[in-house]
Design a protein around this nucleic acid. Structure first.
Length: 398
DNA sequence: ATGTCC
């Protein structure tokens, strides 16, 4: 190990991760190594600084554990970037919209509202979108992120201000995205996907910080919000797949040995590393466009249900934050300001998600301020695997 | 997570 592994868990979670290790000892045919072993393996990668960090949602994933945060020193020419540290669903993230409605306003219209959401937002594996997009449009979109959405009239200008990186990756270059990835993405703009992805109508259950809540337009309990959890669909998946194949080759070229084949990586400053970051940036832009497109569709659904404009319903974006991304950031490491490539895979992050003066170990912990410990109380859930009318009570965690 | 294998 080049650095320590830091694991943030409570007693219950610690029991779970020990159980995972014991289960692996009796059955080693599992696709993934136990999460704690993955945390340790990541600590052996070239150029890692400070620690391989596991946040409370830690569980086994491809190469890196989900919940793993790992930062690499940009001034170290051997420091690496690894697609496994970002994940297959590049820039998967959550977005919260507010409304000026309260539970009493929707309690007799819940089925109608859920059905309207379901009718507007395509869901499921292989689902295709209604947002008009051709090849030329797609290249522009992949380079421009939410600026493209504003230009096309899908986003409000102010949406960008409440979105991580203003909804636009500086690394994006559509020339680094394969034809195949573009082909998969071109029909999927404004689609939810499957698995743990959802578009959910939520009721504010408790306000923990009145001042912050007021700033975000949340005034009192029972206010109606919409949360959208989705990512870069087939486009991001293909970019990750392409990069893993490319890096398997580049590891021979740069003579990099890794402890686990799933930790395929390449020097950040290599041609292959730069190509991945540019393609990853394009996938990030696609995911922001995707969530923005579904914001557009959710606004339409609400507008139809209540016969008011989305503006009259005050349907602003409160925040949009990624949990599958690698970014170049300035951080203080052992008292010195350093430029780092930070891999974040999984983990709900605090809002605002990043501040250079907050130690690396702490700034990724915590839930969004408004939501507290759970992410939905009386919510209608729309996912690719659930029916439109399923009601989720309690926490919907990702 | 994913046209759940090109």
């Amino acid at each position: 190990m080049n650095v320590e592994g830091h694991v943030y868990v409570n007693d219950n979670l610690r029991t779970l991760i020990y159980e995972e290790i014991n289960a692996y000892k009796t059955n080693k045919s599992s696709t993934f190594l136990p999460a704690v072993v993955q945390i340790a393996n990541v600590s052996t990668l070239p150029g890692i600084v400070k620690a391989s960090i596991a946040l409370p949602d830690v569980h086994a994933g491809y190469g890196f554990a989900i919940g793993n945060v790992a930062a690499f020193d940009m001034s170290n020419e051997k420091a690496v970037v690894s697609p496994g540290g970002v994940g297959f669903d590049i820039n998967c993230g959550v977005r919260l919209l507010r409304t000026n409605l309260f539970y009493d306003d929707i309690k007799n219209k819940q089925e109608e509202l859920a059905q309207l959401m379901f009718n507007h937002i395509p869901v499921g594996v292989g689902s295709q979108g209604v947002i008009i997009c051709n090849q030329e449009y797609l290249d522009d979109a992949l380079c421009s992120g939410m600026d493209w959405c504003v230009k096309e009239g899908y986003s409000w200008v102010e949406d960008k201000a409440n979105c991580e990186d203003n909804g636009r990756s500086l690394y994006a270059d559509s020339n680094c995205v394969s034809i195949r990835a573009k082909k998969r993405g071109i029909t999927q703009m404004g689609t939810l996907g499957a698995g743990n992805h959802y578009a959910e109508i939520q009721i504010v259950d408790e306000i923990y910080d009145k001042k912050s809540a007021k700033l975000m337009g949340i005034e009192k309990k029972n206010q109606v919000c919409v949360m959208i959890h989705s990512g870069s669909r087939g486009l991001g998946h293909q970019i990750a797949t392409d990069a893993l194949i490319d890096m398997e080759k580049s590891m021979k070229k740069y003579k990099i040995n890794v402890i686990d084949k799933q930790l395929a990586c390449t020097p950040i400053h290599s041609k292959e590393g730069q190509n991945y970051l540019k393609a990853m940036g394009a996938a990030c832009n696609f995911a922001w466009i995707n969530r923005s497109s579904m914001t557009f569709l959710a606004r339409q659904a609400f507008s139809k249900c209540f016969n008011q404009s989305p503006d009259d319903l005050d349907m602003h974006v409160i925040y949009d934050v990624s949990h599958n991304i690698a970014k170049i950031e300035d951080h203080i490491v052992n008292g010195k300001l350093k430029k780092l490539l930070v891999h974040r895979k999984g983990s709900t992050r605090a809002f605002p998600p990043f501040h250079p003066l907050i130690p690396l170990d702490y700034q990724y912990c915590g839930q969004p301020i408004l939501i507290g410990g759970t992410m939905g109380t009386y919510s209608y859930v729309l996912t690719g695997t659930e029916k439109a009318m399923d009601v989720s009570i309690g926490s919907t965690c990702h």
